[in-house]
Amino acid sequence: MKIAIVGFGNVGRAVAEVMLERRELFQKVDFEPKVVAVFERDGSWIDENGLKLQELLSKGTSSPSWVEGAAMAEERLADLDCDLIVEMTVTNIEDGEPGLTHIVEALNSGKDVVTSNKGPLVLAFPELMEIAEKKNRMLLYEATVGGAIPVFHVAREALLVNRIISITGILNGTSNYILTKMTDEKVSFNAALREAQEKGYAEADPTYDIEGIDAASKLVILANGILKTSKSIKDVRIEGITRITPEMTELAMEDGYLVKHIGYVDRNRIEVIPRLIPRSSPLAVGGTLNVISLKTDVAQDITLIGRGAGPRETSSAILGDILHINKIRKEN
């Protein structure tokens, strides 16, 4: 399988590293990846015979295959000789670019796509799936929600005989860390946020996390990908965590509850709001963990807990999608 990588930041590098580490496993499952192109904003590495990933990781732009200022991905994807595009550029939920253009170009030119980029899916999920179906291509997006948590795989494969009724979860590790800190140590919201930023869990501008926009974006993807709705972020009732105080978390604890930032969607309601969760609930996870619970008609409740972020964790989801596409294409 010939692969092109678009975006070679921390996650892209982690994908390359794990590819190198798992070569023996790939042989056992009849997967022969050949990365023929890697695109960055200021240049690219391209070799139709296959790039040397170890050289890219160690030498970067000093590698002989690096071309400064080369044509960007959107200009090359259509005619590039490859089977699959891995789109890992930075999420932009304002207009979805440049990821949206990358995905459209790849699908229209007959290439399968795996992405970790929430923006295009939040803004154009139905349209992208329509293009994929029309072109008989696959667009997989496990890494867009929950980091390493394989929620779409579980829904698609393991729960195939079930009707999934609703989805509930903690979808943002930053807000969960802040609320956990406030609960455990009775510190203020601002103090907990500062520590989250110092530890690298929160950005310098944490607005998307603490106001619930990131969690709402992920909830839209869950709704459309699993419940088969056509939701947009405008449909989500969103309330952040900035008004939560240590007094609120302490009172909740006294009554046997935790204050958590919970996403919920069924076919009638979609929201991300602070809620009281029983301390004994499977949703009562702490720190930066994410949790996603699927309510079904046969299996009842299935709850998945895991790391919602991190380059290697996210690479697990990306490579899982790539291997799934490889398996389907081999069977066909």
Rank of each mutant, 00 (worst) to 15 (best):
T229N: 05
D297Q: 00
R41A: 09
A196Q: 14
L139I: 15
D81Q: 13
L251T: 10
G147W: 07
N108Y: 00
S281M: 02
G110L: 02
D42H: 04
M88W: 02
D235C: 05
I149W: 09
V38A: 14
K52E: 15
E127W: 04
I318K: 00
V36L: 10
S232Q: 01
D81C: 03
T89F: 03
V114G: 08
K2Q: 14
L319M: 11
I165S: 06
L128I: 13
V259M: 05
H153F: 11
L319D: 01
L100H: 02
L289R: 07
L25H: 11
A216V: 12
S166H: 05
K135I: 00
S109Y: 01
M19A: 02
V285Y: 00
S58K: 10
V11I: 14
S188Q: 04
L323Y: 00
D112N: 13
A106G: 07
A284E: 06
D95N: 15
R163E: 12
A132T: 08
D81G: 09
I273P: 04
P64E: 10
I167S: 08
D95S: 08
L140W: 09
G256L: 11
V272W: 11
L128H: 11
L140A: 04
L227Q: 11
T242E: 08
K327P: 00
E239H: 03
S58G: 02
L319K: 02
A155Y: 07
G306N: 07
E239M: 07
L294R: 01
V35S: 08
K199Y: 12
M248D: 15
G287N: 04
D95C: 06
D266G: 08
M88P: 01
E127M: 09
Y177F: 15
V291P: 09
T288S: 04
L179W: 06
R279I: 14
N224D: 14
L294Q: 05
Y177Q: 03
K118T: 05
I233L: 06
L57Y: 08
N290K: 00
A16H: 04
D184N: 11
E133F: 02
T101A: 13
I103Q: 09
A148M: 14
N326W: 11
D297H: 05
E127G: 11
T245N: 06
K327N: 11
E195Q: 15
M129E: 12
T168R: 13
V236M: 06
A71D: 13
R23Y: 02
K228Q: 15
L20K: 08
R13D: 08
H261D: 02
A202G: 09
V265C: 10
S44Q: 14
R194F: 10
I328D: 00
Y141P: 13
V154T: 14
K327G: 02
V285N: 05
S188M: 01
I270N: 07
I164L: 05
R22E: 14
S166F: 06
E211S: 01
E198T: 13
Q197D: 10
V187N: 01
S44K: 15
M1G: 05
T314C: 10
M253R: 10
R22Q: 15
D209C: 14
D81S: 13
R329A: 13
